[in-house]
Each structure stands twice: as structure tokens, then as C-alpha cells.
Simulated assay, not measured.
Amino acid sequence: MDDSEAFRAAVRVQAAAMLNGDASPYDRALEIWRLAMGEWPGRDGDEACISLHLIWGALTDWVELRPAETDQAETHMITAAREWLTVEGDQQAEARYFDRWIYDILGYERPSVTG
């Protein structure tokens, strides 16, 4: 991907396909993760790929590392995809989505605030 518009369009296609049941949520989630990895470190000033990389990497790792919890992980994938399609394109809504998914749901450590 060479620009954020193409990247975002490709992510929308994968998220919509996940909701339509065109493939397993895991397969679509893995593709979103791959798309985000291909955009690293965020071309065109669009940092969504970094956050999407973290979210979808954690969700796919969940299936790979704890296969007995696949159903639970895939339920989260579907929810994340549905929410992304709702907020994508609204910078403030995206920021809330990223904050909630990265820190509150997936448990990444929040950066320390100094100053």
C-alpha cells in the first residue's frame, strides 16, 4: 500500500467481509494485521496502521496462543471490526476506539505521563 486511503479501503473490505461471514473472523483479522504491517510506520501521516497493527496482532495472537479461547477471541474480532467501521474516518472517534481497544480491552500498558 502506498497511501493511507488505499490502506483504509483495504481494511474496510476485510472488516466488512468479517461481518458478512465471508471467511472466518481469524482469517480476516490476520489479513487486517498484515495490511497494517505493510503500512508500518504510518505513511502520509496516518498513524492508524500502528494502532490497528497492535489491535489485530493481539487478537490474532489470542487465537494462536490460546486456541481453546478461539470463540471468545473471534467474538472480540467481530466487535472490533463492527466498531471500526462505525468510527473510521472520524479522528476523534478513532482515537477513542484505539484507546479503548489497546489499553482497556487488550491490556497494553499505557505510556507513562511525565511532566
Score class of each variant (00 low, 15 high):
A10Q: 15
A16S: 15
A95L: 08
L106C: 05
E69M: 08
T79E: 14
D2A: 10
V87T: 07
A68W: 10
G89P: 07
A81R: 03
M18Q: 07
A29L: 00
A10W: 08
R43G: 09
R100D: 14
A68C: 03
A80V: 12
G38E: 11
T79F: 05
R8H: 03
I32Y: 03
E74D: 08
Y108N: 06
V87L: 10
L85R: 14
A10L: 12
A36C: 06
Q72T: 15
V13H: 11
W40Q: 10
L30H: 13
V63Q: 05
N20C: 11
L54Y: 05
G45W: 02
I78H: 04
E64T: 08
I105C: 03
M77Q: 13
W62N: 01
E83M: 06
E39I: 01
E94G: 10
E64V: 10
D71E: 15
I105E: 09
P111W: 04
P41C: 09
H53W: 06
W56C: 02
D22W: 07
G107N: 11
G89Q: 09
H53N: 14
R66T: 13
H76Q: 10
S24Q: 11
E88S: 15
M1A: 11
Y103P: 02
I32H: 06
L85K: 07
D61A: 12
E88F: 04
A6C: 06
L30G: 05
S4P: 01
E5G: 08
V11S: 01
D46I: 02
R100E: 13
R28P: 06
L35T: 01
I102M: 08
W40I: 01
R82M: 09
D71R: 13
W56D: 02
S24E: 12
D99I: 05
E47N: 12
R82S: 13
A93P: 07
E88T: 12
A81D: 02
A23T: 09
E69K: 11
A93C: 05
S112T: 14
W33S: 08
Y108F: 15
A17M: 13
I105K: 11
G21F: 03
P67N: 07
V63G: 08
I102Y: 00
A48V: 05
Q91H: 08
P67T: 04
R82T: 07
V63N: 07
F98V: 00
P41L: 10
E74V: 01
A9T: 15
R110Y: 14
E83S: 09
E64K: 10
E47L: 06
I102W: 01
E74H: 05
W62K: 00
D46N: 11
D71W: 07
P111A: 14
M77W: 04
Y97I: 09
A36P: 04
L54D: 08
F7I: 11
A81S: 12
A58Q: 03
Q91D: 12
E64L: 13
G89F: 13
A58E: 04
T60W: 00
L59Q: 01
D22G: 04
I78N: 01
A95S: 14
Q91W: 04
P67F: 02
S51R: 02
S24T: 15
I105T: 12
M1G: 13
S112M: 12
H53V: 03
A48D: 15
A58S: 06
Q92N: 10
L85G: 15
E69P: 03
Y103Q: 04
R12K: 15
D3L: 07
R8A: 07
A23C: 05
